[in-house]
Design a protein around this nucleic acid. Structure first.
Length: 441
DNA sequence: TCTGGGGTCCTAGGACCC
DNA sequence: TCTGGGGTCCTAGGACCC
């Protein structure tokens, strides 16, 4: 038995789901935003029509508007996208149990074949019927038919994940590309940029460039020893990449372990050094994390908190507190973690995060704050304290979750949160008033 | 007018225990 | 007499993905 890997990647995913849901958006340039906040935010997706104007995912709103003044901005709805994702995964499951969910709009699938290689005919026979390309075409048709004609995907087919993903990226939208063998892979690699492959980002590309390596042809000429010397173990990965080699397995969804961390961060629409404002925001983020942990019946014991400092306008010097670049190039800030007793109570998480924040923050203005909880473990009887106070708290949290599950996040919340900064939350169809009812704790 | 938000994996050094 | 080695946990930092 030989294996073939398919990579299925949806085109302009959030935008096409929106167009599918709302006929008035079809055929028009639209951009999906993170919510009603338009300052300091970027597009989560751009429709095919918007992309024709040069609008791209990740672009700032003002930039997109400059390129395409008629762009229609739509507030994203993650539940809707998740729902669509579930539906396409259900279709994919019909073709192979070896299905790896890679992101909300991407999946890998492994199909066993009877042929030794994906030969030139690509008509590799499956144990039962058909050929891989026919299967891929059928998947595309079913997605259009069963989910919607605006939901299109590109499918890449190859002998490993890396090359399948590359194949899928070569033709968009609605593409179907096969990289049948290593020989073809190398030919294709020699025509693309280094960072067009999954695993080479701006930093690695830059470091390669500094070594005089600008393409895969040059990368292939570098001895493994040199790559190991420069990139440690990642040198082996780079060496393999240049040759179209990738041994990473398809990990089916049912074999993927628990999540490793749960976190939230928020960019404030203004710079602030108001301690109370920051505190409220961090508490709210902590509550959101706690709720998600409880929903998954998990406890976490490592709390990581970090922030980004405000940008210095027309700044020509390096900000003094640069401790390492967080996220995008050019931002500075700081972060630190601490370990506490396993918990999923937002208040415990907040206390730890706030302690950390006060240690790293030097009262400068900030634009973003985030926290994440890792070192996760499942709830066990041993975790559930028998102390009356703790069990009372557990009951309270359970009631709080039940109500918020039913009526929307922050329908009930801790009294201290009432004055907090507004974070995007789902509109509550059951409550006419935006005002939340306080649960004083 | 100036960059969102959710994750993953890897490495390295130090503390601590036996 | 003053010191080996293995294992684990914790923390910081770097890089990547969508």
């Amino acid at each position: 038995m030989n294996k073939v890997i398919l990579h299925i990647d949806f085109n302009s995913y959030f935008a096409s789901v929106e167009q599918q849901a709302n006929p008035r958006l079809r055929g028009k340039p639209i951009g999906v935003t993170g919510g009603d906040r338009l300052k300091r935010t970027v597009l989560g997706a751009a429709s095919i029509e918007a992309k024709k104007f040069g609008v791209k995912t990740g672009m700032q709103i003002w930039e997109a508007k400059k390129l395409c003044p008629q762009i229609i901005l739509v507030a994203g709805d993650s539940d809707k996208y998740m729902e669509t994702t579930k539906r396409f995964l259900n279709i994919l499951k019909d073709y192979s149990p070896y299905l790896e969910v890679f992101s909300i709009d991407e999946a890998f699938m492994e199909i066993e074949t009877t042929r030794k290689s994906l030969d030139s005919s690509y008509l590799t026979l499956l144990p039962k019927e058909g050929c891989i390309v026919t299967i891929a075409q059928e998947i595309k048709q079913r997605i259009k038919g069963e989910i919607g004609e605006y939901i299109t995907c590109s499918i890449g087919i190859s002998y490993n994940k890396l090359m399948a993903k590359l194949a899928g990226s070569l033709k968009k939208p609605d593409g179907l590309v096969v990289i049948p063998d290593q020989q073809t892979a190398i030919k294709i690699l020699d025509t693309i940029e280094l960072d067009e492959i999954c695993g080479i980002g701006p930093r690695i590309k830059n470091r390669l460039n500094n070594l005089g390596i600008f393409n895969f042809t040059q990368l292939r000429q570098v001895p493994l020893e040199s790559l190991l010397a420069s990139f440690k173990s990642y040198g082996q990965t780079l060496y393999n990449m240049a040759r179209g080699i990738d041994h990473s397995p398809v990990i089916p969804f049912y074999e993927k372990g628990q999540v490793k961390s749960i976190g939230h961060r928020h960019t404030i629409d203004h710079d602030t050094c108001d301690q109370e404002e920051i505190k409220q925001l961090l508490l709210k983020l902590s509550e959101m994390v706690g709720r998600r942990l409880r929903a998954k019946k998990l406890l976490g014991k490592t709390v990581h908190c970090w922030y980004r400092q405000a940008l210095h306008p027309r700044c020509s010097f390096t900000p003094t507190s640069e401790v390492g670049v967080i996220g995008h190039v050019g931002f500075s800030g700081d972060g630190m973690q601490t370990t506490i007793l396993p918990t999923n109570d937002g208040l415990d998480i907040f206390k730890a995060a706030w302690k950390v924040f006060l240690q790293i923050w030097n009262k400068e203005k900030i634009r973003m704050i985030g926290l994440s909880v890792s070192n996760l473990q499942g709830e066990t009887p041993q975790n559930l304290s028998l102390l009356p106070e703790t069990s009372k708290r557990d009951t309270m949290l359970r009631v709080l979750d039940e109500i918020n599950d039913k009526y929307g996040e922050f329908t009930l919340q801790r009294g201290v949160l009432l004055t907090s900064a507004k974070i995007k939350r789902k509109p509550n169809p059951f409550l006419r008033s935006e005002g939340s009812q306080a649960l004083l704790i």
